[in-house]
Design a protein around this nucleic acid. Structure first.
Lengths: 347, 347
DNA sequence: TTGTATGCGTTATCAT
DNA sequence: ATGATAACGCATACAA
C-alpha cells in the first residue's frame, strides 16, 4: 500500500493536481480562487485518502528543508542542553526541526556538518563555533559559506575571537570573572587555582584572561602551576584538583571552567579531607540547573543558556525570512551568583 | 551564483548527466563501468565546480532522507542525554542524522513527530514511548504506523507495558528494585519513602511495583503517604522530600525515581539538618555520570544509557536495511551499585 | 563504455 | 475558477 500523492487526491476529487495544491496550501492570497464546492471535494478526498504532502518533494521544489543544524561542543555538559532546549522551543514553534549534529570537539565532524549545509539538507545553522579554532580547514569552509550568505548564527564570547562576520549571540565571562576574582580577593584569597578543563582551550579565553588580569591588577603573580589544563570530563577535573593540592603551596580558592567540572572539583576537595568553603572556596561557571542543589550550593558565574538558545534561534529565523538583513548581534549579560561554596580564606 | 548541478558538471566534463551520476556514486558494482579517462574528467569537473549532490533531490529520488527521529521524555535528565549520545554515535557512523524532536511529556508534539514520519521527513524513529500512555490518539497513530511497517524502535521497560509490536530495547528496573529493597531491608530500614517524580507516571511502574511487592514480601504495610508523586524537576523532588519528613513517622530511607531527582532529595535532606547515610539512606536510578561525584556518592540502580542508545540505533539501522526482519528485541541488564548514600538504619 | 529518457511529488506559470 | 505543463536535481533501466 503506497502513500497517496497529489495525483491520487486529484483523481478522487475529479480535479487537477494544481487545484489540489491550491486548496491544500490555502492559496487564497492574490490571484487564485477556488470555489467552495471544489474546495470541499478536495478536502474530502484528502481526508479519505489520508493524504499528506511529501516533505521531500516540497524540499526539492521550494528549496528549503525546514530544518536547522545545531552544533554544540560538549554533549555531556548540562549547560549546553539548556541551550539546545532554548533553540528547540523557538524553532519548533516556527515549524522547523533541529538536526542535532554530532558535537565535534575535533574538527572531523564539523566538516560533515558544513557539508550538510552545502547539500541543503538544512536551511541554516546555529553553532558554538569551538572547532573553528582547531582547524584552518574549518575556517576556510566557514568563510566560504559566509561569502555564499548561508544563514549561520554563532553563540560565542566576545573577547579575543575573530569576527567571522556571522550573526551572533555574544555572552562573555571576562567581566564577571573579574567580579569573581575581586570577591575572592576581598575574602583574603591569594592563591587561586584554575581548573581549566575544556574541550577547546580557546573557548575558555574569556575566563582565563579575566583571571590573569585580575591577578595582575592586584599585584599578585600569575603562577602557572595554579592553572591546570585538563580534559572536559568530571574525572579530568577530579584529577586536576588533586594535582592542585599536591602543590607545595596549594590554593585556597578554585575557579572551575564550568559548573559541570566543578562537581568533580568539589568531590576531590572532600576526598582530600577538606571542606568547602571552610578550607577551600570554589566558583564555577554557567549556573547549570543542579548548581543550586549541590552540597554546598555552588557559587557561579551565570549565563542563561536557554535564553541564549532562544535568541540565537530568533536571529536565525529572522535571517531565514529575510536574507538581506544587516548583520545581527545580541549581547546577553552574565553575572556572579554567590551561594555557599565561597567564603573567607582560612587563616 | 547558483549551486552547480549534475548538468553543469556534465557540460564541463563533456559527458552526460548519467555518467556524472555513475562516477559520483561509484557505481563500480555489477554492470556499469566507466573508463579511467572519463572518470578523471568528471572528477576534475566536480572539483572545479565544487559540485556536491543535492540531498533534497536525492531524498525525493531515493525515497529516504538519511535522518531518524528521536523522542525522549525529559530533556533535562542527564540519563537521556546518554541515550541520545549513544544513538548519535551509531547512526552518524552510518551516515544518518538525528532529528531531535521536542521531547513531549504531553502528547501534543508527539502527533507532530508521527506526522513527520508520515511525511517522510525521517526514515525511522527511536523513542522512549512515554507519551503513548497519555493519549488514545497517539496509540492509534502508532498502531497505524506499525501496520504500515514504519521502522520504529522503542526503548522501554518490560513490565506491564503493552507490546506495541515494534522493535524494542528493553531494560527493566523491577528486579533491581527488589535488590535495592532487600538491601535496605537488611540494613534495618522499615519505613522507606519513594519520591515518585516523573513526567509520565506509567514509566515508573517497573520501579513502583518492585517497591510495593518487596514491601509485601517482607510483611510490611504499603503506606501511601510514603509514596509522594511529584513533577520531574529537581525543585519538585526537593519539595517532595520535605513533605516526606513532615510526616508523623518519617522514612529512614528514600528511593528517588531517578538520580537526577535524587540530587534534589539529597539537598533537601541536608537542609533539614540530617545527613546521608547517617540519618537517611538514599538510592537513585540510572547511574548518571555525576552520581559517583556527588557528596555522598550516590548508590543507584544502573542502566547503561549510552548502550541503550547504541543498541536501539543498531536495531533501527538493521530494519532500515531489511524491512522484512522478524521483530527484534534486545534485553539490557540493570544492576544495583552500592556507593556511599546507603547505610544502616538509625537506631 | 556511455548517452537517452523517464519518473519521484511538488509548486508556479501560464492558459483557458 | 480551474487545468496543462514545466521545472526542481537526481538515479536508473535501457538503448546504443
Amino acid at each position: 500500500m503506497k502513500r497517496p500523492t497529489q495525483v491520487d487526491v486529484a483523481r478522487l476529487a475529479g480535479v487537477s493536481r494544481a487545484t489540489v495544491s491550491y486548496v491544500v496550501n490555502d492559496r487564497a492570497d492574490g490571484r487564485v480562487t477556488i470555489s467552495e464546492e471544489t474546495r470541499r471535494r478536495v478536502l474530502d478526498a484528502v481526508a479519505e485518502l489520508d493524504y499528506t504532502p511529501d516533505a521531500r518533494a516540497q524540499a526539492l521544489r521550494s528549496g528549503d528543508t525546514k530544518a536547522v543544524g545545531l552544533i554544540l561542543p560538549d554533549i555531556h555538559n548540562p549547560h549546553f542542553w539548556e541551550v539546545a532546549d532554548g533553540v528547540e522551543q523557538e524553532v519548533s514553534a516556527a515549524g522547523y526541526h533541529i538536526l542535532m549534529s554530532s558535537i565535534p570537539p575535533e574538527n572531523k565532524d564539523a566538516e560533515d556538518i558544513f557539508k550538510d549545509l552545502s547539500h541543503r539538507r538544512i536551511d541554516g545553522l546555529i553553532m558554538v563555533p569551538s572547532f573553528i579554532y582547531q582547524s584552518e580547514e574549518a575556517q576556510k569552509t566557514l568563510a566560504y559559506l559566509v561569502k555564499r550568505r548561508v544563514p549561520i548564527v554563532g553563540i560565542m564570547a566576545d573577547h579575543g575571537e575573530r569576527n567571522f562576520n556571522i550573526d551572533r549571540v555574544v555572552s562573555d565571562y571576562r567581566e564577571t570573572t573579574v567580579d569573581v576574582m575581586n570577591h575572592l580577593l576581598s575574602m583574603g584569597h591569594r592563591r587561586i587555582g584554575f581548573v581549566f578543563g575544556i574541550a577547546i582551550p580557546a573557548l575558555g579565553n574569556d575566563r582565563l584572561s579575566g583571571y590573569q588580569s585580575s591577578l595582575q591588577s592586584a599585584g599578585l603573580p600569575i603562577d602557572s602551576s595554579l592553572i591546570v589544563a585538563c580534559g572536559p570530563d568530571m574525572e579530568d577535573s577530579y584529577q586536576a584538583t588533586k594535582q592542585l593540592f599536591a602543590l607545595p603551596s596549594p590554593p585556597t580558592a578554585i575557579l572551575a571552567i564550568n559548573d559541570f567540572l566543578a562537581i568533580g572539583v568539589l568531590r576531590a576537595i572532600q576526598d582530600l579531607g577538606m571542606n568547602v568553603p571552610g578550607d577551600v572556596s570554589l566558583v564555577g561557571y554557567d549556573d547549570i540547573p543542579m548548581a543550586k542543589y549541590l552540597v554546598p550550593r555552588l557559587s557561579t558565574a551565570s549565563k542563561d543558556g536557554e535564553k541564549m538558545g532562544r535568541e540565537s534561534a530568533k536571529l536565525l529565523l529572522a535571517r531565514l525570512q529575510n536574507p538581506d538583513l544587516p548583520r545581527q548581534e545580541i549581547k546577553l549579560p552574565t553575572r556572579l551568583i554567590l551561594r555557599e561554596s565561597t567564603g573567607l580564606a582560612p587563616s
